[in-house]
Design a binder for these strands. Structure first.
Length: 433
RNA sequence: UGCUCAGUAGUUCAGUGGUAGAAUAAUUGACUGUUAAUCAAGAGGUCGUAGGUUCGAAUCCUACCUGAGCAGCCA
């Protein structure tokens, strides 16, 4: 007898098969029992008919408990009554691991309770769907950048330099020296781009900010491409192609999961249509000033979350906001050739109020300019000598961007909160489990 | 970090000064197509913690702890 996965049930209609499963729920009557089963690939139902099985098997079907692990054997059937389309009529049940008083019931639970049981919550259907989509986004990311000629260059997680705002960095020791957990791999990716042309990183980043919103994690994963011999406009084209590719990949490969989440595929489909609109920071300020709601906003300030949502609502697709004031952006961004007060950069705002998912820019290439910038930002020049070397030895125009993985997943899945886009979220004051 | 709200049964909540409640889960029983199944039964509590007011506090007051939502910061 073949051992199969639930997701492959459609290829085994009429066959007797064996599956290793967990019980998610159970309904039974005197002569029939319905066991809701999951195996990590999908969810479907096992039917046990009293007259067709031994007394022992039916008795076992009646007493099996939520989240007990089982080997079940039976015959796969197509069935219109099943939301999954297929069922298994069981002939045998073998208990593998017991489960007493499983804490998560099919009914409602509060956030705190679920977060304390995150290790078990992951078994639930919605969490399953989100994690599968997360996996598809990661898989599609590798596919996209490989096919575009990028290579993956891993940035270090422990860094020795201490930028000015150390309050938002996690401090640790590196033997007898100070060290900090990475909050971006970008500067290292620039070194990678000068070595290998087009590179990207994918790794965890850490921000010790006291952020407490539905869009922030303390530990999150970032995808940071960096491209040599590339100006802003070409970078924006790669960014929008990348996002469209992610959307198309989950439409193609996550139909079942999107169905579980009740995510409207027609809405997602619109996000694959390129190009995405581009507006300048200046135009964005004008839109906000005319809005009524934000009419007192002045040129030079950064947008808050309500402003980003307002801007994004005016477009049915993600929108690039380009060329922000120099004063509110990091030291490494390239100054605008004709406007001293802005830099060449772009943020990509997701629709539906999900906020900024990409931040990127063209990078400054002049070593003297960068040195001044580093001083102005109050950073230690010695820590950045290696970074300045990148401009001393064959500097070229180059651009890069960073995508917040969990932000993108929250948006793509239509979830309410970023904490559900990562298996074990690290949130303000929450590091268990 | 600020503002707002909330901590009562395993869970989700009601109870706003006078005997601690419901639903659901778990347990036991009934039921041949259930989909958060249904029906019946019994069981389940240091009302976040510490003080205070009162004849009497889950309820009013003070402090603290914990969580959530929003904001700032950002991806």
């Amino acid at each position: 007898m073949k051992t199969i996965s639930i997701i492959d049930a459609k290829n085994h209609i009429g066959e007797e098969v064996k599956i290793g499963v967990w019980l998610t729920n159970k309904r039974s009557s005197g002569k029939i029992a319905f066991l809701q089963l999951r195996d990590g690939t999908a969810f479907f139902q096992g039917v046990v008919v009293k007259n067709n099985v031994s007394e022992e098997v039916f008795a076992l079907a009646k007493e099996v408990k939520q989240e007990e692990s089982l080997y079940v054997t039976g015959t796969i059937h197509e069935d219109q009554r099943s939301p999954f389309g297929y069922e298994i009529e069981l002939s045998g049940i073998e208990k593998v691991g017991a489960s007493e008083n499983y804490p998560i019931s099919p009914k409602e639970h509060g956030v705190d309770f679920l977060m304390d049981h995150r290790h078990l919550w992951l078994r639930s259907k919605r969490q399953f769907a989100v994690m599968k989509i997360r996996n598809e986004v990661i898989r599609a990311t590798y596919e996209f950048f490989n096919k575009e000629g990028f290579i993956k260059i891993d940035a270090p997680i422990l860094t020795g330099s201490a930028p000015e705002g150390t309050t938002e960095l996690f401090h640790t020791k590196y033997f007898d020296k100070d060290a900090y957990l990475s909050q971006s791999g970008q500067l290292y990716e620039e070194a990678g781009a000068m070595a290998y042309g087009k590179v990207f990183s994918f790794g965890p980043t850490f921000r010790a900010e006291k952020s407490k919103t539905r869009r922030h994690l303390i530990e999150f994963w970032m995808i940071e491409p960096e491209m040599a011999f590339m100006h802003q406009e070409e970078s924006l084209e790669i960014q929008e192609r990348y996002i469209a590719f992610l959307v198309q990949s989950i439409i193609d490969n996550c139909t079942y999961e999107l169905g579980i989440l009740e995510r409207d595929v027609a809405v997602l489909k619109k996000y694959t249509e390129l190009p995405y609109p581009r507006i300048s920071y200046d135009e964005a300020i004008e839109m906000l000033q005319k809005s009524g709601e934000f009419s007192d906003i002045e040129w030079g300030v950064d947008f808050g979350s309500p402003e980003e949502t307002y801007l994004a609502e005016h477009f049915s697709k993600p929108v690039f906001v380009v060329n922000y004031p120099k004063a509110i952006k990091p030291f490494y961004m390239k100054p605008h050739p004709t406007r001293a007060d802005v830099v060449i950069c772009a943020d990509l705002l997701a629709p539906e109020g999900y906020g900024e998912i990409i931040g990127g820019s063209e990078r400054a290439t002049d070593p003297a300019f960068l040195e001044t910038q580093i001083e102005k930002a109050g950073l230690n020049k010695d820590d950045y000598q290696w970074y300045l070397d990148l401009r001393r030895y064959g500097s070229v125009p180059h651009s890069g961007f960073g995508l917040g993985l969990e932000r993108a997943i929250t948006w793509l899945t239509g979830e309410e909160h970023i904490r559900e886009a990562i298996p074990f979220p690290r949130l303000l004051n929450r590091i268990y489990p």
